[in-house]
Structure formats: structure tokens, C-alpha cells
Design a protein around this nucleic acid. Structure first.
Lengths: 152, 152
DNA sequence: CAGGATCCGAAAGGATACTG
DNA sequence: CAGTATCCTTTCGGATCCTG
């Protein structure tokens, strides 16, 4: 573990295409390449970062404006909507179109790449929907088993 | 957005089976049920919480002990391994077996539920591996386009 | 060996005010 | 409208020490 070793880089999470090649190599054949410095982790963090998946899901329907997304996604702050969209745009999953009008209008829509991701994430959502009852059961069982027997 | 409305519950992220029913209902037919208070978000947060997916991937091979997992997952701290395993156990994705020996031995393995999740997440990892080059390109293009033209 | 408890720095994220 | 910049609170997570 990382108890004493300080070889992990806490700095920039950026990974360039050049680094990917060697990152892909020298792994156990069976294991995913999911070390901290690798892409899988980067992408996973992106789609799982609390809002991205929601934005992608919404943009599947139709292109939406900044404010529309904000109103659609209950609970998100203006700040987080901005950073989420920037990250998605940066990864080429969402495109941003600014119309030189006043007041300004900015529309976001999925790229082709973004649509392929959507298909995959939908499988995950489907899995969750199909198993949420089992998970809820497991949680209740776990809670019951670990209910403090002393304080009761 | 949540600028003035304070209806969002910042407290416990717990959801019981009872709440799920109504959570599933009254949604736009096309949209996933991914509000903060719903399961999809809960599960997503779980599998994306930096270590869970890695643990699940490792346990696919064979059951492993606490220390083995720690040594296998480079960069994880003892504390995070513990909380990660507890969460997975709580959700019924991983089972924990304690052998009454001394020194103690604890083995973790995937449950049937955990294995079905693995299959799904693998699709996501596959997608990432297949598209990481495109994403890397997009990032470099984005970085180039947004390179501060003044400070240059 | 397998953790639990505690402390504390780092990072995420909301609220607010301001801008083109 | 669509952000940006700043402040400030909450959360995450590593380090350390302790226990069965």
C-alpha cells in the first residue's frame, strides 16, 4: 500500500496520448489497466463525477442551452454545471456552440463519441435499475446485522 | 439549479427499498432515474469511487485476503481499502469471510450480484480502451485551442 | 494480520458577487 | 444569458497510533 512509498503522483491528472502506449503494455494479461495514471481511471472519473452522466443523458434527447440544463438537473450549481460541461467538452464528448447574439445563447450537444459512450453507460444504468432491489435488500440486511447491539 | 431552493437533502445518502418505488415512478418516460436521492446515483458513486472497480476486478480472478488486495492495488491506503470493502459488502457485491485463527485471516470474494456487475463494468472499460485515443486527441485539441494566447 | 479511531491537510463543491 | 472569480464550508482521504 502507499503507507510509506511516496511514488504516487498527487499532482496533475493529465495524461497525453504519448504516455498511453506504455501504459497499455506491461500489465498482467488478465487485469484491466486501471492504475491511477491511466486513461480508464480518467474516463471513469469523468463519467462518474456526480453530474456528467446526467448531462450526457439529457443531451441524448436534444441539444440544450446552459440554462436549460441547469433547470433540468435539479440540485446542480451554476459552477458545477460549468466545470462539468468544460470537462465533457475537453474530452470530446460534448460540443459547445456559441451564438453571437445578445443576450448570448450557448447550446450543448453530444458528439458522435459522446453518443457511443451513452450507449455503454445506459447498460450500467439498466443493470442498476434491475438490481437496485437486491442492493437495497443487502443494505438493509447489512444494517440489521451491524446494528449496534449494545446501544439498543 | 440549487441556487435558492433548499429542498435538497445534504444529509444521509441512504435509500431504503420503500423509497425506491415512488422514485421509479413519476419520471419523464425517456429519462433515467438519476436524481440525487435515487439508486442509480448511489450505485454509480459506489463503482466509481476510485477503488471499488479495481477491487471488483481483482476479486474476479479469485478470492483475496485483505493484505493481498492492499499489495495488489498500488497506491491505496489501509483505511480506504477498509471503507471500500465495507461499502461493497454493504451493497452485497462482495462477501467477507473471517477465519477464527490467529493471526486472523479474512477473505473477500465477489457475490453473484457482484459478478453480474463486473460484466457490465467491463463493457465500460472496454469502451474506454477503445476510445482513449480519440479522447486523448480531443484533449490535446482542446488544450491547444485554449492555450492562453496572451501569456504565450 | 486485519482492522478501528483520530487528526489533519487537500480537494471538491456551494453561495455569492461581478462581467460581457 | 452564460459564464468567471472568490470565499468558505464540507468531504475525502492519507498518516499515525492502537487493539484483538
Amino acid at each position: 500500500m502507499a503507507q510509506e512509498g511516496t511514488s504516487t503522483s498527487p499532482g496533475s491528472p493529465e495524461v497525453t496520448a504519448a504516455e498511453l502506449a506504455e501504459c497499455r503494455a506491461d500489465r498482467d494479461p488478465f487485469q484491466w489497466d486501471v492504475r491511477e495514471d491511466c486513461q480508464v481511471r480518467q474516463i471513469l472519473d469523468r463519467i462518474a463525477d456526480k453530474w456528467s452522466l446526467l448531462v450526457i443523458a439529457l443531451l441524448d434527447e436534444k441539444k440544450l442551452r446552459f440554462g436549460e440544463l441547469g433547470r433540468e438537473i435539479d440540485g446542480i450549481s451554476k459552477r458545477m454545471l460549468t466545470v462539468t460541461l468544460r470537462n465533457l467538452e475537453r474530452d470530446g464528448l460534448v460540443s459547445r456552440t456559441v451564438y453571437p447574439e445578445v443576450p448570448p445563447r450557448v447550446e450543448y450537444e453530444l458528439t458522435a463519441l459522446g453518443r457511443t459512450l451513452l450507449a455503454t453507460t445506459q447498460a450500467l444504468v439498466t443493470w442498476t435499475e434491475e438490481h437496485q432491489d437486491q442492493i437495497a435488500e443487502a443494505r438493509e440486511a447489512f444494517e440489521a446485522a451491524n446494528a449496534d447491539p449494545v446501544a439498543g
